[in-house]
Write a protein that binds this DNA or RNA. Structure first.
Length: 576
RNA sequence: GCCCCUGUAGCUUAAUUGGAAGAGCAGUUCCCUUCUAAGGAAAAGGUUGGAGGUUCGAGUCCUCCCAGGGGCACCA
């Protein structure tokens, strides 16, 4: 529809001002205003302002001229009306039948919004928890943002690789090994692995502040680990195994999956090769006993890639990781879903990629804001002031259970299942609806809000539709035959308009790597739906063909709600 | 000190990339013998941190200031 208006508009511009205009340079925008409370029509354009600049004329006059020109052309009944508004906006109202026509076309399509497989490969790296630490609220963002975007890209026809780049190597393991050797106890660690590791880690950090010798001890243990010391390797792989088991529990609860679990330790074997390569290419150089990559050219501080005790660093492993990914997968894009605080790291990594002649335009650091504590400061594992993901999820599920428990028509088992889906959904949506760049100050009540603009609101709308459909006793095969011909109330047309832009929203979300577009769209669709069934009888409608068409309409809305929520990683329920 | 990000209603925030500031929560009113009240309807709440500038048009771009957050070589 937008394309049709565009071509009509182009025709009018040509007719009116043909002489010396290049329409391609004009970048004509047709905006759709399907939910605005203010009535600016179905579509608007600001073209008159742009033309005014070129023609040195009054935008309002130009808008009026264009309006007259379009009305003179014969477009049958396509436009209901055209108005000039403000100081030169052109607003278009489209005939309702046009929307019904469009809608009937997409009703046949069982994969509405989904795109065919295109030969594009994209790696999403997200979640990236650290071994021997518990996942905390900070991990939530990256995990669910990455998962949702991966889902959306897959839906849009990309070959998606979901990569959990585990933090399973580094000096921190030296600290942990040292702590274990000092204070550890095998039976205790076996009984409660993660909590015990965490306690050791925190204790070591506190002790290190008072006793600098401990720091050296930890660094030495890591150096030994890198030298393949048997005892340390054994401890390390034990810690790693237990941690992954723990992570998988949380991922199961979150319904998040990965294709690849390759972490930092995988690249340990490549370190010396990488260092030599960088030295030989004169990209890296020795400095104060360490090896660095100078990056003045990029206006960045030098990057340290090998410590003076010859131990490797996070960045070194990430360079190896990058080279490996390019070589093995030949991706069209690599998206690092990693927090804001690592901006410098990725700027350095991408700069080194350029020095290595790797295509850095394929690399994206998808930053997101931090989760801050109540003091508005960063939460730190080693300070021990964390809020664990597990606890947040369980609290949300508990809260959801309290509410679903009021529904007397459900069994206990059903209630538990619903509470889990609703509770987890609320947590996810709460994050995905907002722009990812913002920092979040952790607040229990906001985190697990089950009302207002929330997942439960959308899930509730979905459940209401399922209930109506069930009570109608209509068969799907019968519903499939229905064509929409008679719906013409404002609410019905608004719903149809909103449905029509679903593919546009998905593209927008993907292009900008923003889940918030999709999340907000689903909320707006649910608002329209609620208004509709609040004021319009469906099952009690006397005229059968209208009733069928309304059922068909809400059925399709529920399909979009479900598809959209699933893309965000949120499930739906038939009752709640 | 240097670099990056942010500042919108009491609180949390949206705004399709420069187009006509929109929600939710809290507070004020209404609506459950009527397809699930995790809902619906109404009103109220804004000089978009401040000052300049560019533009027909600025929450959005530029400069300066104020406030908050993050990062800055042997952590990840």
């Amino acid at each position: 529809m937008q394309n049709k208006i565009l071509s009509i508009l182009k025709l009018a511009i040509k007719e009116k001002y043909s002489k010396n205009l290049n329409l391609e340079d004009l970048n004509i925008e047709i905006e759709s205003n399907f939910l605005d409370k203010k009535d600016f029509g179905d579509f608007s354009t600001n073209i008159a302002f742009k033309l005014a600049g070129i023609l040195k004329n009054n935008p309002k006059l130009i808008a009026h001229d264009l309006k007259e020109t379009i009305l003179k052309q014969n477009h049958k009944n396509f436009f209901e009306k055209i108005e000039v508004a403000g100081s030169g906006f052109l607003n278009f109202w489209i005939n309702k039948d046009e929307f019904l026509l469009e809608f009937n076309k997409i009703l046949k399509n069982k994969n509405f919004g989904k795109q065919k497989f295109k030969n594009k490969k994209i790696i999403f790296e997200y979640s990236d928890p650290n071994i021997a630490k518990k996942m905390h609220v900070g991990h939530l963002r990256g995990t669910i943002i990455g998962d949702a975007l991966a889902n959306i890209y897959e839906f849009l026809g990309y070959k998606v690789i979901r990569w959990n780049y585990l933090g399973d190597w580094g000096t921190q393991f030296g600290y942990l090994i040292a702590a274990y050797k000092l204070w550890g106890n095998k039976t205790e660690l076996e009984k409660n692995p993660i909590n015990t590791m965490l306690k050791l880690y925190i204790r070591f950090h506190h002790a290190m502040k008072k006793n600098p010798e401990l720091k050296k001890m930890g660094q030495e243990e890591f150096r030994l680990l890198e030298l393949k010391n048997k005892e340390n390797l054994k401890l390390w792989s034990w810690f790693r195994r237990e941690s992954i088991l723990e992570f998988k529990k949380i991922y199961k609860l979150l319904n998040v999956k990965f294709d690849i679990w390759i972490g930092e330790s995988f690249y340990e074997k490549d370190i010396s090769k990488i260092i030599n390569l960088l030295l030989n290419l004169k990209i890296a150089q020795k400095n104060e006993g360490a090896i660095i990559v100078p990056l003045e050219k990029f206006n960045l501080p030098p990057a340290l890639i090998l410590k003076s005790d010859e131990a490797s660093l996070y960045l070194t492993r990430d360079i190896a990781n990058l080279i490996f990914r390019f070589k093995k997968f030949k991706p069209d894009k690599i998206v690092y879903v990693v927090g804001n605080e690592q901006t410098l790291h990725f700027n350095q990594l991408f700069a080194i990629a350029q020095l290595l002649n790797l295509d850095s335009s394929k690399l994206i650091h998808l930053k997101y804001g931090l989760v801050l504590g109540e003091n508005k400061k960063k939460l730190k594992t080693r300070e021990g002031n964390l809020i664990f993901l597990e606890d947040v999820l369980n609290k949300a599920i508990k809260l959801a259970f309290k509410i679903v428990n009021k529904n007397k028509n459900l069994t206990n088992k059903q209630k538990e299942k619903i509470a889990q889906i609703v509770g987890i959904g609320a947590i996810k949506y709460n994050d995905l609806k907002e722009h990812r760049r913002n920092n979040i100050v952790f607040d229990w009540s906001k985190m697990i809000d089950l009302r207002g603009q929330s997942a439960p609101y959308i899930q509730y709308s979905y459940a209401r539709i399922q209930s109506i459909l069930k009570k109608s006793k209509i068969k799907l095969s019968e519903l499939n035959k229905v064509k929409i011909k008679n719906l013409n109330s404002e609410l019905e047309i608004n719903l149809i308009k909103k449905i029509l832009i679903f593919p546009e929203i998905l593209n927008l979300s993907a292009k900008n790597y923003l889940t918030s577009y999709l999340a907000n769209y689903l909320y707006e669709l649910a608002i329209l739906l609620n208004k509709f069934y609040e004021t319009t009888k469906i099952l009690k409608e006397k005229e059968n063909k209208i009733k069928l068409e309304r059922l068909k309409l809400i059925h399709f809305v529920s399909f979009i709600l479900k598809t959209g929520l699933n893309l965000l990683g949120i499930e739906v329920v038939d009752k709640m």
